[in-house]
Design a protein around this nucleic acid. Structure first.
Length: 604
RNA sequence: GGGGCCGUAGCUCAAUUUGGUUAGAGCAUCGGACUGUCGAUCCGAAGGUUGAGGGUUCGAGCCCCUUCGGCCUCGCCA
């Protein structure tokens, strides 16, 4: 076998005259009857190779049998292309290799789609033939970027004295949080492991063990329905540190993020990053992960709305609801039908019962409200609205009246949609923010109890500790999320390290001593043996790479991803298993049970 | 569990106002021509259970029902 001396993206004009060996896939094939040109591809690039019947008739003859995606190796002389024959699209475009020796390493069936045109090919087919899809330069760039991010991360943490420690994949199921993936135990019949939703408790236990600085690039599993940016199986950069407070964690990790952005994209991220409280974020953006690339803040107009003659507003407010809105700059371009059909339907998906609107028009130099709900506002009320939103001519005001949760839940995505459609920001920009001071609990109306917003091990802010007894709903937590362009890329908290506080939190969560003992007994026990103050964070590696490569599809940044039904189209997992395997696991699937029931009833 | 979009040749897409003769095109494939191309070009050929099943109709790619699959989304994701 010819052993290569260079890769296909390497040769330059300076290499002219060099005897080289290249190997790769046939990207394209141009047969001129006499001259045969092949663009040879490997992961580094393309190099044109040329077969000339005058110099080597035998190799030329062989070359004419070659087809796209065959694997070949060639030996030849790198030579400059003659004037006018250069290809400026290729980094190797000023040279070509004149082939003396050709070795066909492997032939290929005609691929089901063309590697060159695969961006137009349906994803379903690309996933079934992922090995071909991944040959494409854009996909290779994503794989490479992902590798670089993990490499930067490992080097970064290593330099700071962190240890990468693996935690078990086969763990204990806990009913909180997402649905677990279960793995049956063969040796202990009728019991199950759960795949980790995150290594949360193990990394905290490692702090009790004086690992002090832990990180892990770790696979996590949550058996919930996938989304464009969410997959049941995903990867976290998981971190935990001892003897630290919020500022320490934030500092370490904003530096990591800045380093990644600098090394991958050459982007300078301004440090320290901006911080915003949860309350500010919810109030101004309606969501705990604000997209700060554009302004267009939400404004509460309940005070103005309750004075209007608009029944929808006044009755909502009487029933304890609120009215919030936003002012879309240049939103005049939305027609009445756009607003009342498209935008109204958009917010309806989030539970909003309607979308009130009015356009801002300039009349004789004065701004007025027109259309939609404008008639319900007095002149004075209109003036107040225009001032509150700092509205300009040809802006569009949009309002939702409902309970606070629905108002925010519907306006936040509406704001993002409008920002995108009105091109209020530069697609290449990145706006980082730390969201802090999350509430420790949120009230669960159905269950009549508090739920953890983050998780039950999150520490309360010291000043709010006494509220554990008096006002649990208003306790702030030492939790923090790092958000980029409206996408949460990481989140974590300082943990509770003392049993008394932990116990109080469990009480408020309605977790009994017995339940706590059953679910996390091992962990609570560990806390009693000298747990240091500690905290940590986890970054979503998949989302990081999505942002860095500019894709909104998580499957693009995973080598072998799954579909929305959790299937792998390449391997056809999940699949049925042999009865023998089930028997060894002491398992019986429902179809079997039904069969057995049927037989039993027939026998009767 | 709910809502929406989609499925026609290997790939990407067409197919006239609820329907009307033999379902077309580009790329790829196969054969031929060609001395410099680089999305090669030119000539020719082959390629189809319109995702599957059922129904309505004189007649279905198109209308209806069921079903399979993909994507987006609400719920869900401590």
């Amino acid at each position: 076998m010819l052993k290569r001396t260079h890769n296909c993206g390497q040769l330059r004009i300076e290499d002219s005259g060099l005897k080289v060996i290249l190997a790769g896939w046939v990207n394209s094939y141009r047969d001129h009857g006499n001259l045969v040109f092949i663009d040879l591809r490997d992961r580094e690039g393309l190099t044109q190779i040329v077969f000339n019947p005058d110099t080597n008739p035998e190799m030329h003859k062989l070359a004419r049998t070659i087809r796209c995606e065959w694997v070949i190796a060639i030996e030849g002389i790198a030579q400059p292309r003659s004037e006018g024959m250069e290809n400026p699209k290729l980094s190797t475009g000023k040279i070509e290799v004149s082939v003396d020796k050709l070795e066909i390493l492997n032939i290929s069936k005609t691929p089901p789609f063309e590697v060159d045109n695969a961006d137009k090919t349906g994803e379903e087919l690309r996933l079934a033939y992922r090995y071909i899809d991944l040959r494409r330069p854009v996909m290779q760039h994503k794989l490479r970027t992902r590798h670089k991010v993990t490499k930067i991360t490992r080097d970064y943490f290593d330099n700071l004295g962190f240890w990468e420690i693996e935690t078990p994949m086969l763990g204990k199921s806990t009913p909180e949080g997402a649905r677990d993936f279960l793995v049956p135990s063969r040796l202990v019949p009728n019991t199950f492991y759960a795949l980790p939703q995150s290594p949360q408790l193990f990394k905290q236990i490692l702090m009790v063990s004086d690992v002090e600085k832990y990180f892990q690039i770790v696979r996590c599993f949550r058996d919930e329905d996938p989304r464009a940016d969410r997959q049941a199986e995903f990867t976290q950069i998981d971190v935990e540190m001892s003897f630290v407070d919020t500022d320490d964690i934030i500092s370490v990790h904003e530096n990591l993020a800045a380093k990644i952005w600098k090394e991958i994209l050459g982007v300078d991220v301004k440090l320290p990053m901006r911080r915003m409280t949860y309350n500010e974020s919810m109030s101004d953006y309606g969501i705990d992960r604000p997209d700060l690339r554009f302004d267009m803040k939400l404004k509460d107009i309940t005070d103005i709305a309750k004075e209007t003659s608009f029944k929808v507003f006044t009755s909502t407010i009487e029933n304890g609801g609120i009215v919030k809105g936003l002012c879309a700059p240049g939103g005049d371009k939305y027609s009445r039908s756009d607003i009342e059909k498209v935008l109204t339907k958009f917010v309806a998906d989030y539970g909003a019962k309607g979308l009130a609107w009015a356009k801002v028009k300039s009349e004789d130099g004065n701004l007025t409200l027109q259309g939609g709900s404008a008639k319900f506002f007095s002149q004075e009320q209109a003036k107040q609205l225009l001032e509150r939103f700092d509205a300009k001519a040809d802006d569009l005001l949009l309002f939702v009246a409902d309970n606070e949760a629905i108002v925010n839940k519907s306006l936040a995505p509406l704001r993002c949609k409008l920002g995108r459609e009105l091109k209020l920001y530069d697609d290449d920009s990145f706006e980082f923010v730390w969201v802090v001071d999350f509430p420790l609990f949120e009230w669960n109306e159905d269950e009549k109890r508090f739920d953890s917003l983050h998780h039950p091990f999150t520490a309360p802010v010291d000043d709010d500790l006494e509220k554990l007894e008096t006002d649990p709903g208003h306790i702030r937590s030492k939790a923090y999320d790092i958000v980029v362009n409206g996408s949460e890329i990481g989140g974590g908290s300082i943990r509770i390290h003392n049993m008394k506080t932990q116990q109080k939190v469990f009480d408020l969560l309605n977790i009994t001593r017995e339940q706590a003992e059953d679910r996390f007994g091992f962990f609570l026990k560990a806390l009693e043996y000298g747990a240091p103050p500690h905290g940590g964070i986890a970054f979503g590696l998949d989302r990081l790479v999505m942002l860095l490569t500019g894709t909104e599809n998580i499957r693009d940044v995973i080598a072998f991803p799954k579909t929305q039904r959790g299937q792998c189209l390449l391997t056809e997992a999940p699949s049925g298993v042999d009865l023998k395997q089930l028997n060894e696991l002491n398992l019986r699937v429902q179809t079997h049970s039904h069969k057995i029931d049927e037989i039993a009833s027939e026998e009767q």
